[in-house]
Design a protein around this nucleic acid. Sequence first.
DNA 1: GCCGCATTATTCGTATACAAACGAAAAACG
DNA 2: CGTTTTTCGTTTGTATACGAATAATGCGGC
Lengths: 141, 141
Amino acid sequence: MRGAERPYRLDDQVGYILRLASQRHATLFLARLGSDLTPTQFAAMVRLAEMGQCSQNELGRQTAMDVATVKGVVDRLRAKGLVTQNADPGDKRRSLLSLSQKGKAMIADLHARGHAVTADTLEPLDPAEQETLLALLRRLV
Amino acid sequence: MRGAERPYRLDDQVGYILRLASQRHATLFLARLGSDLTPTQFAAMVRLAEMGQCSQNELGRQTAMDVATVKGVVDRLRAKGLVTQNADPGDKRRSLLSLSQKGKAMIADLHARGHAVTADTLEPLDPAEQETLLALLRRLV
DNA sequence: GCCGCATTATTCGTATACAAACGAAAAACG
DNA sequence: CGTTTTTCGTTTGTATACGAATAATGCGGC
């Protein structure tokens, strides 16, 4: 005898629900930072502020971006004058990235708005549930 | 006096963790279905199997895809011979989509592999934790 | 029966995202 | 020291994803 096959319902699959949750977060992010930065650009800026200075590939690793993806992101941040690029004296392959003055001046506000987006996204849950969700999600990664 | 400002740590933000979790799911999906379908194409196929027949916009709504996105997805599924398109006799604007024979023949296997991807993704959690995660995630959407 | 509004599908532009391949430079190692 | 292996940055191609605009059609109200 075989066990009863569980039906496949798209709405019950983690992958699908993760996509929906990411979409909603993107919408809320857009409402607060849309005119300035995309979520990915935001992550790169915040990480660069944390790290101070690093290579492009290193920034990609620290923000979970592909080398090809991070190139485009950095290019656009440089075009906006938020990130500067300098040659690495000790390694001719790499260039060192850092926030420009304009970029640094923006960080405190980005943090504030970033917190707001997180609060917006988690708003349907009470604080204990929010902690539970984050703890479980982290274990998936 | 002001309350202590909570520092902004990228690794603690839902949006960022959601992106990481989605990335890991995409990797696991690729391992099981990469040569056949993308996650989005997969969702469209499964949904179309559930709905039987519908317009392109309707399929987009039921799979949380933009009208522009769903067009590309359907185009590629039609190119693979998995989806067929017919004119709607009662509405000249829309065309009715449905799975081809080849597409229908694939569904049972897609369901099986879809279940496997979900299991792979949730593997770090025990069954009770998996239920908790899904319940909380659903409330975010 | 006509007119304004909504819906369908398409198209354009921009921004991730990743695989794959490439040349240049650095590191590892015998 | 020289070779093998990594690493860095870039480029190409494909596939989401969404805003915005458009043309064609459908529909409700008067």
